[in-house]
């Protein structure tokens, strides 16, 4: 049986989604995930010429002709673009990959997120879908993690509350909301969930946190944006 490839923006995102998939399998024994391979690409690309995403798609085409995948997903942060612009960027990446490849590619353009469209590469049919996080400025992965914490977080909360006030009082540079959430996560994983002796790199490296200490987050908690991601990932799993 062929597996899936999901293209994400960063290694950190990949570790988060991997942890989520592991949780989904524990949560519902009837769900068996197909083998999911991750492909990491930077999201900072032009809408009309997304070169990195094109390369990732071309590489995936190679594997599709070998029968490795029958589903391709793209999970991307909306960032400063509109939903329509992001979808256009994905379609452009497929179009550019088609133009550069030696394959015969029949591609149905994506018009909506979370819906499969069919792509046929050298007579091999695959399903392609995309999911956008951070719609309406909410639901960035760090926001989700903050909302599903399982431990008390006095240090992270305190820094989060006092730092903007301090910066403001001293007329220092302002930190964006996004940066503050990242700092909250850093403080939470290092200071609130580890005793002093264990605050080393092995325990605070994001990959290790997601692989070995993911119970400091409750992936079963009802959070709208998290549920949407789960639904999307379920599209790539066999029931």
């Amino acid at each position: 049986m062929a597996g899936s490839r999901i293209i994400v923006e960063s290694n950190n995102d990949q570790y988060f989604f991997d942890a989520l998939i592991r949780f989904l399998e524990k949560d519902n024994c009837e769900i068996q995930s197909t083998e999911i391979d991750w492909e990491v690409q930077s999201a900072e690309e032009s809408i009309e010429k997304p070169t990195g995403l094109k390369r990732a798609i071309l590489s995936t085409f190679n594997d599709i002709t070998k029968g490795k995948y029958d589903k391709i997903g793209i999970i991307w942060d909306l960032d400063t673009l509109t939903k329509e612009e992001r979808i256009r960027q994905f379609n452009n990446a497929f179009r550019l990959a088609d133009a550069e490849s030696s394959y015969s590619v029949q591609f149905t353009e994506m018009t909506e997120t979370n819906q499969f469209v069919s792509v046929v590469i050298n007579e091999v049919s695959v399903d392609v879908a995309c999911h956008l996080v951070n719609l309406d400025g909410k639901g960035e992965i760090e926001d989700i993690l903050k909302a599903i914490k399982t431990q008390d977080s006095p240090i992270a909360d305190c820094v989060d509350k006092l730092l903007p006030e301090c910066l403001n009082a001293n007329h220092e540079k302002e930190l964006r909301e996004k940066d503050l959430v990242k700092l909250w996560i850093n403080h939470y994983i290092r200071f609130d969930t580890l005793v002093k002796n264990n605050r080393n790199q092995a325990n605070t490296k994001w990959e290790n946190v997601m692989k070995k200490r993911s119970d400091i987050f409750d992936f079963g908690k009802e959070v709208k944006e998290l549920s949407e991601i789960k639904e999307f990932l379920n599209m790539f799993m066999n029931s």
Binding site: T65, S101, S102
Partner: peptide
């Protein structure tokens, strides 16, 4: 080829 069993080639530019 996974479906037809025919021998084929993935062509890659140096970039790819």
């Amino acid at each position: 080829h996974v479906k037809t069993g025919e021998i084929t080639a993935n062509v890659m530019t140096m970039d790819m």
